[in-house]
């Protein structure tokens, strides 16, 4: 251990600074990829982890979903959406049960010719008995602005790491700590 410390001292300030710079690059490129994906898919969060069992047996806790949200495409019944109601903390992954393509109000259409279709949606979890009206916090229908994206791809289990880190914060700190230490100590 002492020798390790000596070796660490020998590295000098320059090396430590370089390591910090490397570490920052890794974090920055991660962030860039995430935000870049967000721009490409038009979704604020293009990759989500399933947190509840309401879509079982298709999606279990810890599965990873890949989303897109093409702005000019309408949502269809059977699409699985991720939506976030204002006031609710957690985004919900449920399937679209009803779509109603209402025409936009006159004022809105003259002010901005948006290509985003106006739709009213009703959703339901495959594993739930009833639709989601109770989850809409007083709204009668889900609208386009509430929707984060449509599920396009599926990868099982991998997201469980984040759930484990949320449930056991010590794990998160331990992981971050060791990663940081390794990044600083590692030579070359």
């Amino acid at each position: 251990m002492l020798e390790e410390l000596k070796a660490f001292k020998k590295l000098g300030v320059r090396h430590i600074l370089l390591q910090i710079l490397n570490f920052a690059t890794v974090i920055a490129s991660g962030l860039m990829i995430w935000k870049g994906l967000g721009v490409l898919t038009n979704s604020e969060s293009p990759i989500v982890v399933v947190l509840s069992g309401s879509m079982e047996p298709a999606f279990y806790r810890g599965d990873i979903l890949f989303l897109t949200n093409p702005s000019n495409q309408r949502y269809k019944t059977g699409d699985i959406t991720v939506y976030k109601i204002p006031g609710a903390e957690i985004p919900i992954v449920h399937r679209v049960l009803e779509t109603h393509d209402v025409s936009p109000k006159k004022q809105a259409s003259t002010r901005s010719k948006s290509l985003v279709p106006h739709q009213r949606l009703l959703t339901k979890g495959d594993n739930n008995y009833v639709d989601d009206i109770e989850l809409y916090q007083g709204l009668d229908w889900l609208e386009r602005k509430h929707i984060v994206g449509k599920v396009r791809g599926f990868l099982p289990y991998v997201g469980y790491v984040t759930i484990a880190m949320n449930d056991f914060p010590q794990l998160k700190y331990a992981l971050l700590g060791t990663l940081g230490l390794l990044a600083l100590i590692q030579r070359e």
Binding site: T77, G78, L97, E98, T99, H100, D101, V102, S103
Partner: peptide, 8 residues
């Protein structure tokens, strides 16, 4: 009213 509907 001219609203297109899809209902499961």
């Amino acid at each position: 009213k001219g609203v297109k509907n899809e209902v499961v």
